[in-house]
Every structure is written in structure tokens, then in C-alpha cells.
Simulated assay, not measured.
Amino acid sequence: MAWMAWTTPSALFFIGIALILLTMTIAEIKAPCIERKGFLPISTTRGDRLFIGLLSSAYIHLGFVGLTELSIWVPFAISTVWILTVLKWG
């Protein structure tokens, strides 16, 4: 893996995504989910809400990086709250 310039934040990011996917897989095996309708305008499963949350969090980060000079921790905090909200009530 020496060909890639790994930094601690990027390694933690990918480890975090892997842990989220592992957790979601275990949760799906233990208790299969059913579609439900929350505040999102479509019926979703846990996996749908995870995908929507991760995708929208990426756009939050891109917006902050492209449009502001703020620390990356600001969009991280906003994205964390957002993805938890989507997973719980989406």
C-alpha cells in the first residue's frame, strides 16, 4: 500500500466506513428490516438510509471545502448529526 499516500484522517475515514458496513450487515442478519416511511419522501430500508446519509454527507463536505475556509471539523460535525438523523428518523 506504499503507492498510496495514506494519512491518518483518510485511513480513519475508510476504517469507519468499513465498520459501519460491518455493523449494518450484522444488524441485517440479526433483525431483517422492513421498509418504512419517515421524513424522507420515500419508503426506505436501513441500507437505503445509510446510502442517502453517506451521499448527502459527502456533498456537505464538498460544499464546505469548496465554498468556505472553515476547518474540516465543522462539516464533519454537521454530517455526523445529519447521518444519525437520517438513520434514526429518515
Rank of each mutant, 00 (worst) to 15 (best):
A27E: 14
L70Q: 10
S56C: 05
T8K: 11
G66R: 12
F14I: 11
F51T: 15
S10Q: 13
A18Y: 10
T25A: 15
G47R: 09
I17W: 10
S71V: 04
F13I: 00
I52H: 02
L70D: 10
P32I: 05
C33Y: 13
W73D: 11
F64H: 03
F39N: 01
I34H: 01
L22N: 01
L54A: 12
M24S: 01
S79D: 02
C33M: 05
W89T: 02
L12V: 14
T85G: 02
A77Q: 07
W73N: 06
I78K: 09
P9L: 04
K37P: 05
G53T: 05
Y59I: 13
V65K: 12
K37S: 03
V65L: 12
G66I: 07
L22C: 10
T68A: 08
F76L: 14
S71Y: 05
F51L: 15
T80V: 01
T23R: 12
L40M: 06
L70I: 12
L12T: 08
W3H: 12
L54E: 08
C33T: 15
V86R: 06
F14D: 00
R46V: 02
P9V: 13
L12M: 11
V65Q: 09
V74Q: 09
I60L: 08
G47K: 06
V86H: 01
T85V: 12
K88E: 15
A5V: 13
T25C: 09
E28L: 04
E35T: 06
H61S: 11
K88A: 14
G38T: 03
I17N: 09
A2F: 11
L84T: 04
I83H: 05
H61M: 15
I72A: 12
K37A: 05
P32W: 08
I72R: 02
G63M: 04
T44C: 04
T7Q: 09
I29M: 14
L84P: 09
I26L: 15
F51E: 06
L87H: 04
S79E: 01
T44Q: 01
S57I: 14
L22P: 07
A2G: 13
T85F: 10
T8I: 15
M4S: 01
I26Y: 13
G66K: 11
S79W: 00
A58E: 02
F76Q: 07
P9M: 08
L21A: 15
T23H: 04
L21T: 10
A27T: 12
R49N: 08
L19E: 03
W82P: 11
K88S: 13
A2Q: 14
M4T: 12
T25V: 07
S71C: 03
F76P: 04
T23C: 10
A2H: 09
C33N: 15
L84E: 00
I26Q: 13
I72E: 13
I83Y: 03
Y59P: 08
A77K: 00
E35K: 00
I26N: 06
R49A: 07
R36D: 00
P32H: 10
L84R: 02
G38S: 05
L19G: 09
S56T: 13
L70N: 08
L12F: 09
A2I: 12
L50Y: 01
I42P: 02
F39V: 07
S56L: 12
L84F: 03
T25D: 14
G53Q: 07
W73S: 12
T8G: 02
T80G: 14
G47F: 06
A2M: 05
L55I: 15
T68Y: 08
I72Q: 08
A31W: 00
W3I: 10
R46P: 02
L62E: 14
R36M: 03
P32A: 07
